[in-house]
Design a protein around this nucleic acid. Sequence first.
DNA 1: TGATAATCGAGACGGTACGTCGTGTCTTGCG
DNA 2: CGCAAGACACGACGTACCGTCTCGATTATCA
Lengths: 227, 227, 227, 227
Amino acid sequence: MGYAARMTPSRRAPDNTRRNEATRKAILNAALELVGEVGYAKLSVEGIASRAGAGKQTIYRWWPSKGAVLFDALLSLSEGPEGGPGELPDTGDLESDLRAVLRATADELNDPRYSEPMRALTVEVLVDPELAADYQQRLEEPIREVKRRRLRSAQEAGQLSSELDLDVAVEMIWGPVRNRWLHRDGPLTGEYVDVVVRTALDGLRAPDTPEGATEGREDVGAPGGTG
Amino acid sequence: MGYAARMTPSRRAPDNTRRNEATRKAILNAALELVGEVGYAKLSVEGIASRAGAGKQTIYRWWPSKGAVLFDALLSLSEGPEGGPGELPDTGDLESDLRAVLRATADELNDPRYSEPMRALTVEVLVDPELAADYQQRLEEPIREVKRRRLRSAQEAGQLSSELDLDVAVEMIWGPVRNRWLHRDGPLTGEYVDVVVRTALDGLRAPDTPEGATEGREDVGAPGGTG
Amino acid sequence: MGYAARMTPSRRAPDNTRRNEATRKAILNAALELVGEVGYAKLSVEGIASRAGAGKQTIYRWWPSKGAVLFDALLSLSEGPEGGPGELPDTGDLESDLRAVLRATADELNDPRYSEPMRALTVEVLVDPELAADYQQRLEEPIREVKRRRLRSAQEAGQLSSELDLDVAVEMIWGPVRNRWLHRDGPLTGEYVDVVVRTALDGLRAPDTPEGATEGREDVGAPGGTG
Amino acid sequence: MGYAARMTPSRRAPDNTRRNEATRKAILNAALELVGEVGYAKLSVEGIASRAGAGKQTIYRWWPSKGAVLFDALLSLSEGPEGGPGELPDTGDLESDLRAVLRATADELNDPRYSEPMRALTVEVLVDPELAADYQQRLEEPIREVKRRRLRSAQEAGQLSSELDLDVAVEMIWGPVRNRWLHRDGPLTGEYVDVVVRTALDGLRAPDTPEGATEGREDVGAPGGTG
DNA sequence: TGATAATCGAGACGGTACGTCGTGTCTTGCG
DNA sequence: CGCAAGACACGACGTACCGTCTCGATTATCA
């Protein structure tokens, strides 16, 4: 399950069968621990190796960069027994489903144990296009597909506009939360999540009311039948 | 106008009056040139100093990190003769104003001369909270205020919902464009901009159609069956 | 009394009349203190200036090197009210006179307050031929002349060989003491002094005794009349 | 045979077996060349490393200071195939043996190729007590022992006083030559060597002439009157 | 069941850059 | 002007990591 294992064999594919699994785990753990303790900027291959009780060469043999190590480390975290990312809840009430999902996400992002390595990886991906491709393919896209699926379901239920670009829609809903986390420009609270979901769904425009029904907005909630 | 000048005097604030302005500019220029040539990862204080014909100490005297240098360099780029960031166009037609502004932004972000240093700085800000605070205060916030102002104007004209959280609204409109640029997850085209603006304004929901489709919207009405 | 004042006017002789005497003394004192505290290797112009409350330029204006400062500092120490180094005792008993003088010298060299700066200066002189010339002329030679004078007196009294090269003789007597101090290859004790004096005077050869009178050597002391 | 190899393992003794011998020699050579070209004051670890095509760390790994490098470099010069410093000639004629040895020494000291690095090292030893201990033990003392041995032989042959302190005797003979070299206070000629040897052996005193001038001595007998 | 071949730990190596210190020169403003 | 203060270009310091490269010493297939 190492990084290099799934890469196109760039130089010389080491014989993966002989690989020492215990060492691999030790390295991944060390990477996670260290990124939490000293931050990504001060994370070093040498540090990981020494913490893991491994030789530097062992790391360079299997991973092309410290970003790749961190990537695998995070994957090994999030990968439960099964492979995929599971499905989003679909109770029929889109808005409350989204609220629930995003609040859970927010909780995760507020937990430094997960958040710090994740931020580190994200930053590394921004900087290293090599890594970015793999990241998009193996982490980002599967998750995005799950999100799209949930939205498509709502769309088919007539709750979302049929002409919607689902990728834009995903961005509208999840983007603000990720941004607030990544750029640290405010606390990631449940209230924020709620406002984002509501605003994304309803849009920014004033309701098209000849006779101002501003307060009526409070209960724009998906009407049972049509929703 | 240097970085340190606006910092809280943490250790020993150097006497800014004695500062050599020519050297300061040379350093800023060198930083910009180099980040364009070799990228941020390979940008070094040593390189900047040597390119600028300055001593390293001179850089360390006035800036705490290469990120701070780059920050000032980018500020000095965007700072025209006057100080502030100007005002957004306000023709009364919010949607087309936003389209124009965002397309201009997209053009800028598609120009590597501006884009690469900007991405570098953005990433550095993600990694260095020290820098982040200053960045928020001196670049992000003023610009965001301008955006809020334009939206508030639309709000007062009754075009936007009166109960809107303007920060969330700004995020809805500008966030997706910034993200597509920063994360490189797609081309930053005029079409994308248009879709984003439209979607943000109208929201994701299907129009509660039966009677009277909302005006100004190309009504493609979700076909009943699939909904 | 500054160093430069007596130098050949190499570059541009500053106007000595305007010189601030208090500052000069402060600098000399600072140099002495610092060389005692941190050693010569870590002595710096910057350190001297800061300790003296003087500007660096003030030092560079009046001295060509930190060695020169230290030189003047030591001169100002040893220079009592009168100028010259005085005369060596001449009781008529050369051996005991030498013993007394050398034991006093040894005491001085065992005192770190004097010894450390002195060692520093000596080393600097070994390294800087520029400084060495001045040193020879202003410190070494006058003192050597005094020593020669005492030996010449003994020579004229028939106590020393008339064909003696007095410079070699001075070296024989004072050299070993200076060396033991400078090279730290043993303790500088009164016993050592005594042995040196005795050995230098008597030479290394076995006494020319057909009938071995080894023990008689104890009282080779200068015979009253001829001594 | 590196410096660290013989040091007490102060911090972390690097594994000497893994050491790259070619690099070690390159460093030593570079140090010797450079000290000859630019002098000790301008000798820098950086310069040695670059000249040797080595990394600075490689130098710091094995030597604690540039003085230590120079030390090893000089040792590697003087160390012929065998280890020790050989034996002094012993023809039975002490005086002419000493003359020969000292004239050879003087020649060596007059050759800048050997003399300049040697002076540099000597000065460094004066300044760095850390280095001094090793220096005494590895260079000074073995050589001194050889000298003592020759003198002891003469002593046993009855040519030198039996109660002589051999260390003082060595100092009497070799000290003046070393000093004239180190302090540059005169040319180091064969004549000087001869005078020193003669004077050291015979002592400074006037021969207690009246009856029987010591044989082997050009008797210029101090004329009674002036004595 | 050894021979053989890879991985592994350890860590030396040539490099690049770090951030700091000191040099000697130059500039500013006070007395 | 001398002077305190200190910015400046420069050079070197000693350290941290980089990524590559041996070294034995384990493993772990395959002959």
